[in-house]
Design a binder for these strands. Structure first.
Lengths: 219, 219
DNA sequence: AGATGTTTTAAACATTTGTTTAATAATCTT
DNA sequence: AAGATTATTAAACAAATGTTTAAAACATCT
């Protein structure tokens, strides 16, 4: 078994286990046994459990955010060319669609869809820390563009509504395709296109709404 | 130190630690040391770590959902008396407001605000399992009333949009009052009234929106 | 082929985990 | 006050944790 194979096997196995059980609840032995490699392999190839966790995020989150950034840039350029402000719906689609469609590409990324959904709100500090660092550059651009699309909203209002959207997206990714939610009565695996459209419509409506009371409030 | 004192001390300390670190990352020794009691006290009074976790949720979630249920009942009765369907905004307020105002009442419930926010999406199975069992009765009523308020929406649409709201609420509770998010530039501790109104407006707009495309879709 | 560098392996490392035990202390009952 | 419950304590339990080690196996290159 070559060098790359082992690293890959570990990444895949750990990704799946972290997604299913969470960071703390996943042991090195569970990872290495699932990957079919020696216990010491993780420390040899990645250094530590935390470094492995980071590598998993690097592998998926970087290309994911690159896709999102590219789409945001296209939206911004197109809007500038037409002299209009960018549409909130398109911005939110650039944010929401890629992670939910992630699973369609390569196998194994199904697990990351769940993992990423959890990591938005994971109570574990390790997950939170790593996730934040990798998301920060993209979040800045996202907030900027939302401000352009919704200039009547304050910085605080944009920030919080963006957080609401993040929460809704995280929840969606957390329960979509998760077998543990199968006891519920409704169909949890609807047409993905419909689900995405539904979430985007929800997010756009929420983003664009005006609040009745507390007009002088910053939110 | 009397019997009740010890149990209370353990509940308070564990609640705070579970909220800050998560279930798995919190050790029995950390709990008992923080509570100023003997290590064996948790097993003696509660039986196990998991049973303690459950007790924490019982203590807070039961009265919380009782308040919410009572408000839902009032809304339903009032609507029935007027021959109208209940307003989505009022229903969502009954769901959103109590947990966010939780912290205003007794001290210590600040921690539970964070803990409950995490537990909506906690990757840990223990948290998820216990939380679901305690939420199920309320969720049923909530979905019923949302169906009454928005009769043009299908069961699936109601379910998913309710999940979106849950996600947005969880995210809000997760970051509000959480010191770890203080590096961000915006003011994370706005007026609570404004924040609640903002989230409810967001949720109502999202709930009531109609989707442009995929008109024949169940969502 | 032989030497060099890399990867894998099994074993042991020192901690930490949740839980249990048996003795002591405190509280309540009669 | 004596006896019977109940609560607390320190110590030890077995099991699991992430990590390190040193030898073995493999690969690569001159």
């Amino acid at each position: 078994m070559g060098h790359l194979d082992t690293k890959q096997q570990i990444l895949d196995a750990a990704e799946s286990l972290f997604a299913r059980e969470g960071y703390q609840a996943t042991s090195m032995r569970a990872i290495t046994e699932s990957a079919g490699v020696n216990l010491a392999a993780v420390n040899y190839h990645f250094g530590s459990k935390e470094a492995l966790f980071e590598a998993i995020f690097e592998r998926r989150l970087r290309p994911l955010n690159e896709v999102r950034q590219k789409r945001l840039k296209e939206i911004r350029d197109e809007a500038k060319r037409q002299g209009l402000k960018p549409a909130a719906g398109e911005i939110l689609r650039a944010f929401i669609e890629p992670p939910l469609r992630f699973k369609e590409s390569r196998k194994g990324e199904v697990d990351f869809t769940i993992l990423i959904g959890r990591s938005f709100i994971d109570p574990d500090d390790t997950a939170q820390k790593i996730f934040f660092r990798l998301m920060k550059p993209f979040s800045r651009v996202m907030l900027e563009m939302l401000s352009e699309a919704l200039p009547e909203l304050s910085r605080e209002a944009i920030f919080w509504r963006y957080q609401f959207v993040i929460g809704a997206l995280a929840r969606t990714m957390r329960i979509y395709k998760n077998p543990k939610f199968e006891t519920m009565k409704v169909n949890l695996k609807p047409d993905l296109d419909s689900l995405i459209d539904s979430l985007i419509s929800f997010a756009v409506a929420g983003m664009e709404t005006t609040i009745g009371k507390c007009k002088d409030s910053p939110l």
